[in-house]
């Protein structure tokens, strides 16, 4: 039964990936100007012959459906093409950067979940108290401030006025240090971008935890626990939070795709050498294969994440597993 579900889900996923590829391919080609214009612009101008040779070299002189077919055929074989702009295989560019993005995204998500949940629990203890209101205010600010603005403000305050952290990049290329020194250097560079990306989600988690906790704390079994003399710490930690945290886990899974797209902005502000920066540069350069490669890659990540979440539900929750 489970196997059949997995197979069906996989077939849907493949269809979805192909649809994503075709749709993205067509959308990107709708934008005015082509990669040859950008390459010519970089060159300081080019003659028709040079433009024609660039278009021929990258297959841009072929009709769109031919280009699409060639691309899909190559993608099916795992070849995402050659970057027009960076003159390198797209798969190499992506693999070179995916680690940086995952490091940033997981750090930000981890920070947001741990700190957000903690703040939410604290706020739920006295829903009308000062702490609770403070958490609400911080959440609203964190959620409503544009991510790039937060990033720039943090750079100005904590990298320029109070120079505690580096301004940008993932590590200092001018320093030659050992592996431990490198790890420390990366961690030092990671603080501001991870905080910037995490703060938006932190706001959501703290609000969600607060609301969820308040709901759970009003339940009969909490009253029963208190009535039989369970300590407040255990009531919160063992009984209330365990149940309240379920929607948070669900949201975290769903948000994974969103946080990857949020990384585009944060990476751009901090020049973090991940997929986001690559996506941003590729869009400006009309580097079709690279944009498509990144979109394909992120679509696959999101689809796989959803698939795993879906399957985990079935394993974890008997009601879904048994449903016909």
């Amino acid at each position: 039964m489970l196997l059949w579900t997995v197979i069906r889900r996989l077939i849907y996923s493949v269809i979805l990936v192909v649809a994503v590829l075709v749709l993205n391919f067509l959308l990107i080609h709708l934008a005015p100007g082509d990669p040859a214009d950008v390459i010519a612009g970089e060159m300081g101008g080019a003659t028709e012959e040079v433009l024609a040779s660039i278009r021929k070299a990258y297959g841009l002189d072929q009709p769109l459906y031919v280009q699409l077919w060639v691309y899909l055929k190559a993608a099916a074989g795992g070849d995402l093409g050659q970057s027009f702009f960076y003159n390198a295989p797209v798969i190499d560019l992506i693999l070179d950067r995916v680690g940086a993005t995952l490091l940033l995204v997981f750090t930000a998500l981890g920070f947001a979940i741990v700190v957000g949940t903690t703040l939410g629990v604290i706020a739920s203890r006295k829903p009308t108290g000062i702490v609770s209101n403070l958490v609400t205010v911080i959440s609203v600010i964190g959620y409503s401030a544009p991510i790039f603005w937060t990033g720039i403000m943090l750079i100005i305050v904590f990298a320029s006025l109070i120079p505690l952290f580096p301004i940008s990049n993932m590590y200092d290329v001018t320093k030659s240090v050992g592996p431990f020194g490198y790890a420390l250097d990366v961690a030092h560079h990671l603080v501001l971008p991870a905080f910037t990306l995490g703060i938006v989600y932190l706001a959501q988690y703290s609000r969600l935890t607060r609301a969820s906790m308040l709901e759970v704390l009003g339940s009969d079994y909490i009253r029963t626990a208190r009535a039989k003399g369970v300590s407040e710490r255990k009531v919160y930690g063992r009984h209330a939070l365990r149940n309240a945290v379920l929607p948070i886990i669900t949201i975290a899974g769903l948000q994974f795709g969103g946080i990857v797209s949020g990384a585009v902005l944060v990476e751009t502000v901090f020049n973090w050498p991940g997929l986001g920066t690559l996506a941003f540069d590729s869009i400006l350069a009309r580097d079709y294969p690279t944009i498509l490669g990144i979109l394909f890659f992120s679509a696959v990540i999101v689809i796989v994440a959803n698939l795993i979440t879906d399957l985990l539900y079935r394993v974890a929750d008997p009601r879904i597993r048994m449903a016909k």
Partner: peptide, 14 residues
């Protein structure tokens, strides 16, 4: 070492 910065502002700060 030719080091890339995302924008002029952060480069000038550096």
């Amino acid at each position: 070492i030719i080091k890339n910065y995302k924008d002029v502002t952060s480069m000038v700060l550096a």
